[in-house]
Amino acid sequence: MSDRVHVLLVDDQPLVRAGLRVLMADSPDLAVVGEAGTGAEAVRLARDLRPDVIVMDVRMPGMDGIEATRIVTAGPGAPRVLILTTFDDDEYVYGALRSGASGFLVKDMALDDILAAIRVVAAGDALIAPGVTRRLIEEFAARPEPGPPSLPPRALAGVTAREREVLALVGRGLSNGEIAQRLHISAATAKAHVARLFTKLDARDRVQLVILAYEAGLAP
C-alpha cells in the first residue's frame, strides 16, 4: 500500500463512511486506512495512522470538523484535509478556510469528482468543489475576522505584475492549465508562477491563495 494514497474517513454517519469506503475500494490508487465518527477520534487516528488525506465532515458531536482540522493540520508532515459538507446548511464551514483545510467537497457531488478531489489534494494542490468557489469566498470575505487584515497592501510589494495576474486567476478558481491557456503561457510556467506565489505570500496551499486574492481585491 506504500504507493497508494492513504485516506482517513471522518463522518458521524456510518452510511456515509461506508459509501465512501466502497467507492474507494474500486480505486487501486486509494486506500482507506481508518474511519472516525467524531472530531476527537479523528485527531487520535490522524496521529496514529498518519494518513495522506482526511475526508472530514463538519458537523459532528463534541469536537466539530473545523476544530479537528485545526489540530491535525498544525505542525510539519500534517495530512491534507478535505472538508465534506452539505454546504447550504453549514454556516460555519467558512471557518475551515482558516483552520488548514485544503479544499471542500459537497456531499451530493458525483462520486468520480470526489475521488478526483482526493487525488488532487494528495498531490499537493488544493480544490474547492466546482460551483462553490465564488459563493464560498464571497461569504468568507463578508465575514472578516477581528484584527488586522491578513494581507496588507505592502504584502504584494514583491509580487510581479504577471504574478498578480496569476493570483487573480487563482482567486477565480482556475486551475494551472486554465491559467496557462488564459495567459498564453505553458502549463509549467503557470505552475512556476503559482509556486512563487506560495513562497512570496507565505501561503500554505491554493485555498489560501484564493483567500489572499480576494483580500487583495484581485478577484472581485
Rank of each mutant, 00 (worst) to 15 (best):
L212K: 15
Q181K: 14
D52L: 09
A18Y: 12
T73E: 03
G131F: 11
V16K: 01
R119F: 08
R44A: 14
V121F: 02
A190V: 11
D11V: 09
G171P: 05
R4L: 03
A117Y: 06
L49I: 12
V43R: 06
D108K: 12
V33M: 04
A25C: 11
S175G: 10
V33L: 03
D90V: 04
E163Q: 15
R119G: 05
G103H: 10
V10L: 11
A216W: 03
L127T: 03
I137T: 07
R182I: 05
S2A: 14
G147R: 10
V16Y: 00
A180Q: 09
S27I: 15
L115N: 02
V194P: 00
L218N: 07
P14D: 11
D48V: 13
L111A: 15
L8E: 01
L183W: 09
A42S: 14
G173I: 12
L156P: 05
R204Y: 02
D90G: 09
A123Q: 08
S186C: 07
R162S: 12
G95Y: 00
F87W: 11
L169W: 12
L127I: 08
S150C: 02
R98F: 06
T69W: 01
V166G: 04
V121I: 09
G177S: 12
A195D: 11
V207M: 13
S99D: 10
D3L: 15
G173Q: 04
V5S: 03
E163F: 11
A155E: 10
R70G: 00
L156I: 04
T38G: 07
M63H: 11
A168S: 15
R196Q: 13
G158P: 01
V166A: 13
R162Y: 03
I83Q: 04
A126E: 13
G62N: 07
P146M: 05
D12F: 08
A123G: 13
D12G: 12
R80D: 01
A123D: 13
A123N: 04
E67N: 04
T73M: 05
I71C: 02
R206Q: 07
P152Q: 05
P130N: 07
G171W: 00
V166R: 08
G34M: 08
G19V: 10
I185W: 02
G131T: 13
K191Y: 14
A110E: 14
Y94A: 11
R204D: 15
V53K: 04
Q181E: 15
E91P: 00
F140T: 05
S186R: 11
R204M: 09
L23P: 03
E165W: 02
P28V: 11
L84A: 14
P61V: 06
A203Y: 10
A117W: 08
G171Q: 05
V120Y: 06
Y94S: 07
A123V: 00
V81C: 10
L45V: 07
L212C: 05
V194M: 06
I179T: 05
L136R: 01
E145R: 13
V10Y: 06
V32S: 07
I114G: 00
R47F: 08
G217C: 09
E91Y: 15
A192Q: 13
G77F: 06
L156G: 05
G62A: 07
P28N: 08
R70I: 00
